[in-house]
């Protein structure tokens, strides 16, 4: 792969990556795009580390996940970083946050999950990643991924049933 091919491939993957990061960042598109850009530049500079054993998109997601994780742990002053506050019903101060989600239901639903469950659910249902992909992205063993997925499904089902989702 050369530089132009890298850019073309990244152009195909960036939307999915940014969407995932945007949800993790509680709808803050500026922060999500910052992290996405950081991750893609890291991927560009360390391309020799991509050995081709996993899919390219999985490798990009792994870098992006690590960048988000580092950012979330070091930036404790920001409101959106506080994962508990993501779960609150307070109006978000970020001008972008309301538009960040098509539906506030989703935001509230995923915010009720634990951090690990949230990440697994977003990768599995929103980005259509397999358990093996999620294992490679997050570093969690596949048994742990399945366990989080199972618990998250249970919580989401209860939430959707309360909303009356899917009922005619």
């Amino acid at each position: 792969m050369d530089k132009e091919q890298f850019i073309r491939t990244v152009a195909q993957e960036q939307e999915s990556l940014r969407r995932f990061l945007r949800v993790l960042c509680g709808g803050d598109s500026f922060r999500a795009d910052d992290i996405a850009q950081e991750a893609l530049l890291k991927a560009y500079l360390s391309f020799e580390k991509f050995q081709g054993r996993a899919k390219f998109s999985t490798w990009l997601f792994r870098i992006a996940y690590n960048c988000w994780y580092d950012s979330a742990r070091t930036s404790s002053a920001r409101e959106v970083v506080s994962l508990d506050e993501v779960g609150s019903d307070r109006p978000d101060d970020s001008a972008d946050a309301a538009a960040g989600f098509q539906r506030q239901d989703l935001r509230l639903a995923v915010s009720a999950l634990s951090e690990a469950e949230r990440i697994v659910v977003l990768l599995f249902y929103m980005e259509d990643k397999t358990v093996k992909d999620i294992e490679a992205i997050t570093g969690m063993p596949s048994g742990t991924v399945r366990s989080h997925l199972s618990r998250a499904r249970k919580h989401l089902r209860e939430y959707l049933d309360r909303l009356g989702y899917g009922r005619p």
């Binding site: 939307e15 940014r18 969407r19 945007r22 949800v23 709808g27 598109s29 538009a99 960040g100 989600f101 098509q102 539906r103 239901d105 989703l106 935001r107 639903a109 995923v110 659910v121 977003l122 249902y125 929103m126 499904r153 989401l156 089902r157 959707l160 049933d161 989702y165 899917g166």
Partner: peptide, 18 residues
Amino acid sequence: MADDKEIRKFIKSGAPDV
């Protein structure tokens, strides 16, 4: 009870526009 397909549909329909 909401099944897997409905969960996926719910999450995808609520995903942010990028």
